[in-house]
Design a protein around this nucleic acid. Structure first.
Lengths: 227, 227
DNA sequence: CCAAAAGTGTTGTGACTACACCCATGT
DNA sequence: ACATGGGTGTAGTCACAACACTTTTGG
């Protein structure tokens, strides 16, 4: 009885105009113990010349879903694939963007694991890494992007506190001190070494690789992998 | 309300078709110690006759923002205002809804505090309260609504565990046993009385009202208010 | 042998739980 | 007086943090 066959049946009721739907990206990395966020200098109005999140318009002819759309935007604007994007939230309203009578944005976040080379792509003048904590309070950013960054940081921190590491969060192989340092940078606080290792152990999310890695000029550390 | 002021300076680039944007509601209540979710029997294809989340199409001529749009849909479909709606997530894709070539949904959740009388409104045949936990695994619901319900439950539980009670979560005045019972129903687990009260105390989110309330035929309980 | 970082054991503290107990009211 | 649920005190347990310590490498 539920046989959706006719794909172009008229919607029950009048056809209403739809808003402009954009996809924006909050891309993080950890550099020198600091959580940084990737911002683009805007080439167009509004907020021309200011810094804002890289993003693009949803293309219903190209994107199979919101998430794959976010991946496409990453490719076009940043020239790289993003590991494990996660949705932050959606915002929208009539006064959001002067280029359209009604505009909304779906925001995704991702963490770059290694030195995935990010390079400016289509319609991006320049890409800049800013301290994420500072950017989340920087009123000079375009739109309400500083608030979106704050929401993205909150979500990322919750995930790290729960030790939910997705593939792509770290390089293929890494040491526990490296992982702990990364977590500390994201959380903005020091973690206890004993507790951290015990929780990792109990979570059972890592497995060791029977090989070692030099750590400068000292005792080498055990190498691990996710899952 | 907001007159679309034709700020149409041609968007830099071609104008792309936009998806159908819907707003769906996950409305909870607690009845007899069980967390329940409100579902509507669908009058139209797809999934005609099945149960699904009440929702409606975003109207850029009526809605100032996504959130106020969710409120409007609540009024139209349920005949009531929803206290403190919170966004769950947005989902969308090309194959989502046969009525449109590309459709997306922004999902909001809310908890009805008292017996706010919900009644079927425009284009709603019948409203039903189901056990929320069961509904989150009920494959017979329309679309992927059982997954959306699961996400909404997870978000609600996280909020309750953090003791983040918004106005409207409870009636104006209530007792601690009532609040604890409500939390237990939402979490689906018993809470320790001592710990619960100590955490409430430390959080400082409630204030007592110098008045009492009878609790059946026994010792009356202290009455509290939020904030 | 020394420095420095990796990794482990030990102890104290604080939060949660279980349990017991007192309090206030209606019958 | 008693039953019933509201409210509080006490002791045991568990997780975490601080600290000390051992281990392993390069110089």
């Amino acid at each position: 009885m539920s046989s959706p066959q006719r794909n172009h049946e008229a919607p029950a009721g009048p056809i209403h105009p739809m808003p402009l739907v954009r996809l924006d990206l909050v891309v993080f990395r950890v550099e020198a113990g600091i959580l940084q966020v990737l911002l683009a200098k805007r080439q167009q109005a509004p907020f021309k010349g200011r810094l804002g999140l890289p993003g693009g318009v949803l293309r219903i002819d190209l994107d199979a879903s919101l998430e794959t759309g976010a991946q496409r935007v990453a490719h076009e604007r940043l020239g790289t694939a993003l590991p494990q994007v996660r949705q932050v939230l959606a915002v929208g309203g009539a006064q959001r963007d002067p280029r359209a009578p009604w505009a909304m944005t779906v925001v995704y976040r991702a963490v770059l694991s290694a030195q995935l080379p990010v390079q400016a792509g289509k319609r991006v003048q320049e890409l800049v890494w800013l301290d994420a904590q500072q950017a989340s309070q920087d009123e000079s950013l375009a739109f309400d992007h500083e608030q979106l960054i704050g929401q993205a940081i909150a979500g990322l921190r919750a995930e790290v506190e729960a030790l939910q590491f997705r593939p792509g969060f770290m390089p293929e192989e890494f040491t526990l001190p490296q992982l702990q340092a990364r977590c500390e940078a994201i959380l903005g606080a020091a973690l206890n070494k004993v507790t951290f290792r015990r929780r990792i152990e109990e979570a059972g999310i890592l497995k060791e690789v029977p090989g070692k890695l030099v750590g400068g000029a000292h005792r080498p550390a055990q190498v691990w992998r996710i899952a």
